[in-house]
């Protein structure tokens, strides 16, 4: 397999080399023949080809230098986090770190849930049902990063009993939806699942 591959590639390489070489010889011959009335066309073609190939080479060389700043393999592989939620009391929030960002896990009270469910969707800047934002209505799991400019909102604050971002005054409700202020969208919901009744796996 690998030997045949090697042979194949070698043949292709030789072919290309042969083509290039014959091009050189032919062009030299042609150049000698028609040195006087050398057509501008061919010359321009050569220069254009040089520029084009050169540009592609520069672009190809630039890519690794750009790509190296993207998240690397070890970052991408960062593990999922499992959180034990058995010790969270009613109406309490814990914050855990996942992929360098805070994740709010709140066990909501019944009032909060009904408040969140009974909001008229027309009032919302980013309309979304509460049911769509939770897997179990008691547990609200969301990324604690304000969708405005990335600050961490404070809990139990603001005009809507939810969260309040101190940086630029965005108010979120008990479902983490934006109600007032500059933030454009609701707080994000990360990918998560209930492993069992007491454990959430984020990621």
């Amino acid at each position: 397999m690998s030997i045949s591959y090697t042979i194949l590639v070698t043949i292709i390489a030789l072919l290309i080399l042969f083509l290039c070489l014959s091009w050189v010889f032919v062009s030299i011959k042609v150049a000698n023949k028609e040195q006087k009335e050398e057509t501008a066309e061919r010359r321009y073609f050569l220069y254009t080809a040089s520029y084009a190939l050169g540009a592609v080479a520069v672009g190809a060389a630039a890519w690794p230098l750009i790509d190296q700043m993207n998240p690397d393999a070890s970052v991408k592989a960062l593990a999922t986090t499992e959180v034990d939620i058995s010790s969270i009391g009613l109406g309490k929030t814990i914050t855990v770190l996942w992929r360098g960002k805070p994740i709010f896990i709140r066990r909501r009270t019944q009032e909060e849930i009904s408040e969140a469910q009974n909001v008229n969707l027309n009032e919302l800047k980013d309309p979304q049902k509460d049911e769509d934002r939770v897997k179990k209505s008691e547990w609200l799991v969301m990324t604690g990063v304000c969708t405005h400019l990335g600050c961490v909102p404070l809990g139990n604050k603001g005009d809507f009993g939810g969260w309040f971002c101190p940086c630029h005054g965005s108010h979120y409700d008990t479902s983490g939806r934006i109600r007032k202020g500059p933030a454009p969208t609701n707080l994000e919901i990360p990918k998560y699942e209930f492993v069992d009744n007491n454990t959430i796996k984020i990621g």
Binding site: W23, V24, S27, L46, A49, S50, L53, G54
Partner: peptide
């Protein structure tokens, strides 16, 4: 290939 073209 680039070398050939530039050489020409």
């Amino acid at each position: 290939i680039l070398a050939f073209v530039v050489h020409l």
